[in-house]
Amino acid sequence: MTQGKTGTELAEPPKKPVTVSINGNAYRADEGECLLTVAERVKIPIPHFCFEQSLEPYGACRLCMVGVVHHGKTVMETACTLRAKEGLTVLTDTPDIVKYRTILFELYLAEAPKSAVVKEMAARYGVTKTRFLRRVDTGDPLGGACILCGLCVRVCNEIMGAGAINFINRGPYTVVNTPFTEPSRDCYGCGACAAVCPTHAVSLEDRGGERILHSWSETKVPLSQCVSCGKYFAPAALEKSVLSRIEPPLRDDLEGLCPACRAKKLAKKEILAATGGDPGDA
């Protein structure tokens, strides 16, 4: 892994309050805070696809462009990579931004013609048609809805540490999938990719004792069955990796239980401990 590429961490420690101006109104922010976060907090809409609080800004979707006013000149920058500082002045809807945003939305409408999310978001900014040729995707595992924001890849690699999926090819040929477009052995089946996907492009389903990740070359991951109630509750590999982070005595107690039964068992244990009973026969 690369070391030290963590702009947020570096900017973090001194949380000095500053005032930034967005569309002519003043707002409080922490120095170094991501401008897109500030805007979201104060409910100023800035469209975006590739930003996720827990990951470094990625700067790929280009939708979050704002105009930064500096010495009377306005320069475009992406809000996700902008850091709040005293006197920062930005405009979210300059004529240039409207012009470029329209084209970007049209490009997205052509790239992911099946995505309802893209359609809705574009419509909110007045873009309902595209003058560009739509992609015809026959049998696209992401259902013609992927806009290559990279969030699934980054969550899978950087947060889950599974590294099951990645980008394949480059330029307009880029897709996301498993290597050799074959079922992955590294996939935990955690579904974080599907949860993070802004366009709901990732398709998966739990069927029988398995989770099937349709979008990822039909990767199948076995689910654990609860030893107490018999329900399938989580991908086995994921359960193992979660349990490995828990202290051994407790781990032995919880192994094989679904979250509901776990809670019951823990509650029982606490009651018994409080009343001085013997937990052994739980």
Binding site: N157, G163, N166, F167, I168, R170, P179
Partner: peptide
Amino acid sequence: VRISQLYSIVTF
């Protein structure tokens, strides 16, 4: 190095 990363590199 994860196979998904190597595959990504080779196709890039």
